[in-house]
Design a protein around this nucleic acid. Structure first.
Length: 800
RNA sequence: GCAGGAGUGGCGGAAUGGCAGACGCAUCAGACUCAAAAUCUGACGUAGGUGACUAUGUGUGGGUUCAAGUCCCAUCUCCUGCACCA
C-alpha cells in the first residue's frame, strides 16, 4: 500500500468527526481521564509548531487511554482576550470581535488538519459573553468574600501600551508586551488578595504530582519567609518605624537603619530633615532608575543619611542613624530594615561605604573582612550572650520583644496581591459601579454578563484610561443599591482572568444556569494530566490554583487542587538552534509540513525529535526520516504472510508492546517511536508479517499516526475504527528469547561474546564462556581471582 | 549570588552501576537507472593494522567498584528560573 497522506488524512478526519468517536460522555460508568493542554491565544500569525508539540503529548496519551477503556475528556478552546488583538484593532480599525473570530476559525482549521482528537463540541472562547459571564461571576464571589480591594498605589505603568502592569508583567523593568521601560505611577488599582491564599498554595503542592523543578519554582514565587516585625521609635518623635527581619536574634548588632526612598516617613518629617534637598535629589535619581538598573548595581551601595532623624534600638536604647538607600525596596516587608552589618553582606557593604559601625554579635567569622552569616555563639548581646543555637536565640528574642510590646513574630511573602485591572477594551468588564452615595457597589448577579459595549475607537485615553471611559452609554448607570446616578468601572480584567478557570467550563460548556453542573464537576475534576509550557508554571498555574482553591472554599468544586499532574514540553528551536522568531525568519509553519509530508509525519516527528522536555532544534531532514518510516509501515500490507516463519518476531512484538506502553506513560515518546522503527527494520529483514502482528503494530502506532493506521486497518478488511480498539497486551514470559547473547569481559574489558540459554545457571554460563577459544587463551596461565555473572547480561573474569 | 538542569560521534539523541553510541539524520561506497531523484544493500567515534584485532573514548581532575556516561569529591562551561527579599 502506498502512503497517500493527502487523501487518507482528509478522509479519516471526516469519518471521525461524523462518527463523533472522540466526544466525551458525561456520567459514563467507565473510569474517567481528563487530559488538558494549555488553550492557545489565537494570534493572527496562526499556529506554531510549538503548539503541535505541546498538544501531541496528551493527544497520544488521550488516544491510548481511550483504547484502554477510559472515558476521556480532551478539550480545546481559545484564550482570546488580549493586547495583540486590540493593538491590531487600533491599527486596522477592525473590531476585535471580528479579528478574534477570524483567528479562531484559522486555528480551528489548522488543529483539525493535524487530526487531534479534541472534543469539538466543548470548544470555549473566553471572549464569548456566555463564558465571561462566569468569569465576572467568580469576580463578584471574590468581591463578596472580601478578596477584592481597591487601593491607590504606585503601579508599574507602560507609557507605550498605556496600561498598568502587574509585577509579573513588568519583570526587569520592561513591559512584557512591548518591552519598553516601565515607569512608576500612582493609580487606583483593583487587587485580588492572592496573598491570603499563599499558605494554601504552598501546602497544596504536597498533594499534586508536579516535577520537582516546577514545584520549586512555585515555592520560590510564593517566597515565604518567617521572621519578626520590630518597632524602632524615632528619637524625640511620637513615631514608630516598623521593620521586618528574619534574624531578630541579631538586634544587638544593629548600628543603623535603612528605609526605601519611597518610604512615606520622609515626606511626613520633611521639615525635620536638615538635608532634605539632598534627599530629594537622591529620590529623583532613584525614580529614574529602572528596576533592572537598581538590581544591577549590587556592589556599589548608594544612599543618603537623614540629618535630624535618629532611631532608638528597642533592646539597648542606643541612638542610631537612619539612611535612605535604594537597596531597600518599598515593596517587600515594611520598606524599612534594621542594618546588622556584621552579619549581612549588603549592610556590611553599605557600612563600609558610609562609615557606620560594625558590631559582631555572632562569633565564628572574621568581620574585618566580610559579614558572617553562619551560626555561632552570641556575644555583645545582653540577655542573649552565650546562646549558640539560632532557633533558641530567635525564640528568646521574640519573647522579649513581645514582653516589651515592640515586636512580634510574622511571615512575609515575595508574592504580591494581584493587580487585577487593565485600561483596555478587549477584556472582561469589571462588574462594579461607583456610586456617589454608596461607594463601590457590585453589579447584581442577574445583570451578568456585563457586556462590552460597541466601540468605534479602541485607543486608550491619554492618562491611560480605558477606551470604555469614552462610552457615555456604558459609563452612565444607576446605582444598584440606591438608584442614584452612578458611573461604571471602565477598567477590564487582565488576560490571566479567563484562563484561571477555563478547565471547569469544558466540563459543562453550554450551561446557562451555572458555571458548571456540580455533578459533572464532581465526575470530571480534578484534571488528571495537564501539559503546557514552562513559562506558565508560575503565573498562570498559581493564579488558576488560587481561583480553584477559592471555588473550593465556597463549595463550587470538590477538590482544592485543580491539576493532579503537570508536565511541560521543551521548546522547538529554529533549524539554526536559535529560538524561533519572526525577525530571525526561522519559524516553521505546521501547515507547510502537513501539506508537504502529512499530519501523521508532523505528529510523529515532533515527538521523535528528542527528549520531550528538552529544547530541540527543528530539522527538515529528520522530518523526511519520519515520513520514510511511515511509508515503510504502509508497505507492510505487501508483506502480509501466513508463513509460520513470522513467529520468529513474536518476542520482538511482545517487547515492543511493553516498551511502547511504558514509554508513553513516561513521556519518552522518542524511544517509543524508535522502538517501532526498530521493529520495522526487523520485519523488513524477515520480509513477512502476519495479520495479527500487523494489527498489533498499527494499534501501537495509532496514537502517533492515526490516519495511516486507520487506513491500513481498513485495507486489511478490519471493521470499525482502529482508534476504538483495545490497547494491545503483552505476555511477560514471551518478552524473552530462548537464547541470549552476552558479553564476556576479562578484567572489565569486553573480549568476546557467547550465546547462552536464557536464564542459565551461573556455573553453566562460566563454562560456556571459558570454552570460547579467545577467552580461553586470555585466561591461560593466569590466576582466576573472581568471577562475576550478571544474569543474561555479561560475565567478567578477574585474573592476575 | 541562590536554586534547578545539562555537557555523549558530523547532527538530533539512546543507555534499571553491567557489551557506550539504540533509533533517526547527514556522509561515503555499491545495486537499480542513459542519467538524476526515489528506493534497496553495506560502511560509518578516534588512532593504528591488509586482516581477525589492538589502543583509546561520554567537559576536566581525582575517588569508590570486578565493572562508572551513570555513584562520591573537586573543577570548568552552558541553559533555565529567582534575585540588594532584609
Amino acid at each position: 500500500m502506498k502512503h497517500n497522506f493527502r487523501k487518507i488524512e482528509e478522509k479519516w478526519q471526516k469519518k471521525w468527526e461524523d462518527a463523533r468517536i472522540f466526544q466525551a460522555v458525561d456520567n459514563s460508568p467507565k473510569p474517567k481521564f481528563y487530559g488538558l493542554v494549555e488553550f492557545p491565544y489565537p494570534s493572527g500569525a496562526g499556529m506554531h509548531v510549538g503548539h503541535i508539540k505541546a498538544y501531541s503529548s496528551l493527544e497520544v496519551i488521550s488516544r491510548k487511554r481511550r483504547m484502554e477503556g477510559y472515558n476521556v475528556l480532551f478539550p480545546i478552546g481559545f484564550d482570546a482576550f488580549g493586547l495583540p488583538t486590540e493593538n491590531y484593532a487600533i491599527k486596522t480599525g477592525t473590531h476585535p470581535r471580528i479579528i478574534t473570530d477570524q483567528n479562531i476559525a484559522k486555528f480551528t482549521n489548522q488543529l483539525k488538519k493535524v487530526g487531534f482528537s479534541f472534543d469539538w463540541d466543548r470548544v470555549i472562547d473566553t471572549t464569548d459573553e456566555d463564558y465571561y459571564k462566569w468569569t465576572q461571576w467568580i469576580f463578584l464571589k471574590m468581591f463578596e468574600a472580601g478578596l477584592v480591594f481597591r487601593s491607590k498605589a504606585l503601579v508599574n505603568y507602560c507609557p507605550s501600551c498605556k496600561v498598568v502592569l502587574s509585577n509579573e508583567d513588568s519583570q526587569g523593568g520592561k513591559c512584557d508586551i512591548c518591552h519598553s521601560d516601565v515607569v512608576q505611577k500612582s493609580k487606583d488599582v483593583w487587587y485580588l488578595r492572592i496573598t491570603q491564599y499563599a499558605d494554601k498554595l504552598l501546602e497544596g503542592l504536597d498533594q499534586v504530582d508536579y516535577p520537582a523543578n516546577i514545584k520549586q519554582q512555585q515555592i520560590n514565587w510564593i517566597g515565604k519567609s518567617t521572621g519578626a516585625f520590630v518597632n524602632f521609635s524615632l528619637d524625640g518623635l511620637d513615631e514608630k518605624l516598623e521593620i521586618y527581619t528574619t534574624r531578630p536574634d541579631t538586634l544587638f548588632g544593629v548600628t543603623f537603619m535603612v528605609i526605601a526612598p519611597e518610604h512615606p516617613l520622609i515626606d511626613k518629617y520633611a521639615d525635620r530633615i536638615a538635608n532634605m534637598d539632598e534627599v530629594k535629589a537622591y529620590r529623583t535619581e532613584c525614580a529614574k532608575k529602572t528596576e533592572f538598573e537598581r538590581t544591577q548595581l549590587v556592589k556599589d551601595k548608594t544612599g543618603v543619611k537623614l540629618q535630624g532623624i535618629q532611631a532608638v534600638n528597642p533592646v539597648n536604647g542606643k541612638k542610631i542613624p537612619v539612611f535612605i538607600a535604594d537597596y531597600v525596596m518599598m515593596g517587600y516587608g515594611t520598606g524599612a530594615i534594621m542594618a546588622v552589618p556584621a552579619h549581612d553582606q549588603r549592610d556590611y557593604d553599605f557600612a563600609r561605604a558610609f562609615g557606620a559601625d560594625i558590631i559582631e554579635v555572632i562569633k565564628g567569622g572574621d568581620i574585618s573582612k566580610e559579614a558572617y552569616a553562619g551560626d555561632g555563639e552570641m556575644v555583645n548581646s545582653g540577655f542573649l550572650n552565650g546562646y549558640t543555637n539560632k532557633k533558641d536565640s530567635i525564640a528568646r528574642m521574640l519573647e522579649e520583644l513581645v514582653k516589651m510590646g515592640v515586636g512580634h513574630a510574622g511571615v512575609q511573602f515575595k508574592m504580591k496581591d494581584w493587580a487585577f485591572n487593565r485600561q483596555r477594551y478587549w477584556g472582561e468588564p469589571i462588574p462594579i459601579v461607583h456610586c456617589p452615595h454608596c461607594g463601590v457597589v457590585p453589579v447584581p448577579y442577574e445583570e451578568l454578563p456585563l457586556r462590552l459595549p460597541p466601540v468605534e475607537n479602541f485607543e486608550p485615553g491619554e492618562e491611560g484610561e480605558s477606551p470604555l471611559a469614552k462610552i457615555e452609554s456604558f459609563v452612565n448607570c444607576t446605582c444598584p443599591k440606591c438608584g442614584a446616578k452612578a458611573r461604571r468601572e471602565t477598567d477590564t480584567m487582565p488576560q490571566w482572568a479567563g484562563s484561571s478557570w477555563y478547565f471547569l467550563r469544558y466540563i459543562d460548556p453550554h450551561n446557562d444556569q451555572e458555571l458548571a453542573d456540580p455533578e459533572k464537576l464532581k465526575y470530571w475534576m480534578p484534571v488528571d494530566w495537564y501539559n503546557g509550557g514552562m513559562e506558565h508554571v508560575t503565573r498562570h498555574m498559581i493564579y488558576s490554583r488560587f481561583w480553584h482553591h477559592f471555588l473550593y472554599d465556597i463549595g463550587v468544586v470538590n477538590t482544592p487542587e485543580p491539576y493532579a499532574k503537570r508536565s511541560a514540553q521543551g521548546l522547538i528551536l529554529g533549524p539554526d538552534g536559535d529560538k524561533m522568531s519572526k525577525s530571525k525568519g526561522n519559524v516553521v509553519d505546521p501547515l507547510d509540513i502537513v501539506e508537504a509530508y502529512g499530519a501523521d509525519t508532523l505528529r510523529t516527528y515532533v515527538l521523535f525529535m528528542g527528549d520531550y522536555g528538552a529544547a530541540t532544534p527543528w530539522s527538515d531532514n529528520s522530518v523526511k526520516g519520519c515520513k520514510r518510516f511511515l511509508e515503510r509501515v504502509a508497505g507492510f500490507t505487501d508483506l502480509l504472510s501466513e508463513d509460520s516463519e513470522t513467529g520468529k518476531l513474536e518476542t520482538a512484538f511482545h517487547r515492543a508492546i511493553k516498551k511502547v506502553s511504558s514509554d508513553i506513560e513516561d513521556m519518552k515518546f522518542n524511544t517509543a517511536i524508535a522502538c517501532l522503527m526498530s521493529l520495522t527494520n526487523d520485519i523488513y529483514s524477515l520480509g513477512k508479517i502476519s495479520r495479527e502482528q500487523l494489527q498489533i503494530f498499527i494499534e501501537l502506532l495509532c496514537p502517533f499516526a492515526p490516519h495511516l493506521c486507520e487506513e491500513i486497518w481498513e485495507f486489511m478488511g478490519g471493521e470499525g475504527f482502529l482508534s476504538q480498539h483495545a490497547w494491545p497486551q503483552y505476555d511477560e514470559s514471551k518478552t524473552v528469547e530462548a537464547q541470549t547473547e552476552i558479553g564476556v569481559q576479562v578484567n572489565g574489558k569486553v573480549r568476546g561474546k557467547v550465546v547462552i540459554p536464557t536464564g542459565a545457571e551461573k556455573e553453566e554460563v562460566f563454562a560456556i564462556a571459558k570454552a570460547d577459544s579467545r577467552i580461553a587463551s586470555l585466561l591461560e596461565g593466569k590466576t582466576l581471582v573472581k568471577e562475576v555473572y550478571v544474569p543474561n547480561r555479561l560475565v567478567n573474569f578477574v585474573v592476575k
